[in-house]
């Protein structure tokens, strides 16, 4: 009994020393891993490709996160990540940040997403909404509207085609400002009207904003008179609990489907991108291999598999990549 404790302490010290030793030995061996972050909308495509790529190249470490497009660019322009997923093009301010940090990149359009305006499957009162309606219900001037009908006056003022609205509780759930889906919604739906009316191009702040997909699904499915917006793949993968509201454009009310998104008749479709750090790609062949795979037929199959819509033609994407 008397010696055992001492042995234990010695063993502990040996373990400590061994760990300390190995720290010194291996040192810095230039990592060949791939770090991808950015849009949670694009994350499923990049992650599916990462998984496929990993099974063919098991030696390459690879990680895919989805904190949001804006957050992704922050990391990307700080040189923290190799590839940034984005559900909108890079903003001027972000491009400046990248330039200041000396991060050169190439922009690759990889898929199309139909921004889907969603409600609960129990909601049968609202079939279609136009941009004016969405502005009245979700725009910067809708702060404090707890009921759909609170937006009646604003809708009428805007000439919204679907006002007045039902006198029912309005619970709004959607992605937060870190998300490219938020930015796209503002850009495609709210911005023009907001500019005309001299308002900030933002949504109302008083809604449940979440980067947690589960919270968004529960929030929208949980109330029969909910309203929110998500990416198309997100909607279609949860179609048993969410219902997409048709969006009114030049061609009338169009519901999001792969066909309407691909042919452009769905009014609020948007391209999805990946941004690749060219210097890191030049230094790390694994990144090149991964992007090559991404743009191959196998890689692009992930676009369909995850519920998004392929571009009609990838030649400009491929030539952008080839000419990096």
């Amino acid at each position: 009994m008397r010696n055992r404790p001492v042995l234990f302490v010695v063993a502990l010290a040996v373990v400590a020393a061994a760990c300390g030793g190995s720290d010194g030995d291996s040192g810095d061996s230039g990592s060949s891993g791939i770090r991808i972050s950015g849009s949670s909308t694009v994350e499923p495509i990049s992650a599916t490709n990462a998984q496929k790529f990993n099974s063919a190249n098991p030696d390459v470490a690879i990680s895919v996160e989805g904190p949001g497009t804006g957050d992704g660019f922050k990391l990307f322009c700080a040189g923290d990540t190799d590839i940034s997923d984005a559900s909108r093009p890079i903003k001027d301010s972000e491009a400046e940040a990248c330039a200041d940090a000396g991060v050169d990149y190439v922009e690759l359009m990889v898929a199309i997403d139909g921004l889907s305006v969603v409600t609960s499957t129990e909601n049968s009162a609202v079939e279609c909404l136009g941009n004016e309606d969405l502005y009245a219900l979700l725009g910067p001037e809708s702060i404090g509207f707890d009921s759909w009908s609170d937006a009646d006056a604003l809708g009428a003022e805007l000439g919204a085609t679907h006002a007045p609205y039902p006198a029912a509780e309005l619970t709004v759930t959607g992605p937060g400002e870190e998300s490219g889906t938020y930015d796209s919604f503002v850009e495609l739906v709210l911005e023009d009207i907001a500019d005309e009316r001299d308002e900030d191009a933002v949504t109302r702040p008083d809604y449940v904003a979440s980067a947690n997909d589960n919270v968004i699904v529960e929030g929208i499915a949980g109330s029969p008179t909910s309203l929110g917006w998500v990416g198309y793949a997100f909607y279609i993968n949860n179609a048993d609990r969410l219902r997409a509201i048709a969006v009114e454009g030049d061609a009338g009310c169009v519901a999001p489907t792969p066909e309407t998104i691909a042919d452009g008749s769905y009014p609020i479709a948007r391209p999805l991108y990946i941004y690749v750090n060219t210097a890191k790609a030049a230094a790390n062949p694994a990144i090149v291999d991964y992007v090559d795979f991404y743009l191959s037929d196998d890689g692009l199959a992930s676009v369909d598999e995850t519920g998004y819509v392929r571009l009609a033609d990838y030649s400009s994407t491929r030539s952008a990549w080839a000419g990096r």
Binding site: S22, D23, S26, S29, G33, Q51, V60, A61, I62, S63
Partner: peptide
């Protein structure tokens, strides 16, 4: 700590300690 997809690949111990 990563909440998304990642694979460690053929990393050594030190790379795992300092990686994702």
């Amino acid at each position: 700590a990563a909440t998304g997809f990642f694979a460690t690949g053929g990393q050594g111990l030190m790379e795992q300690l300092s990686g994702t």
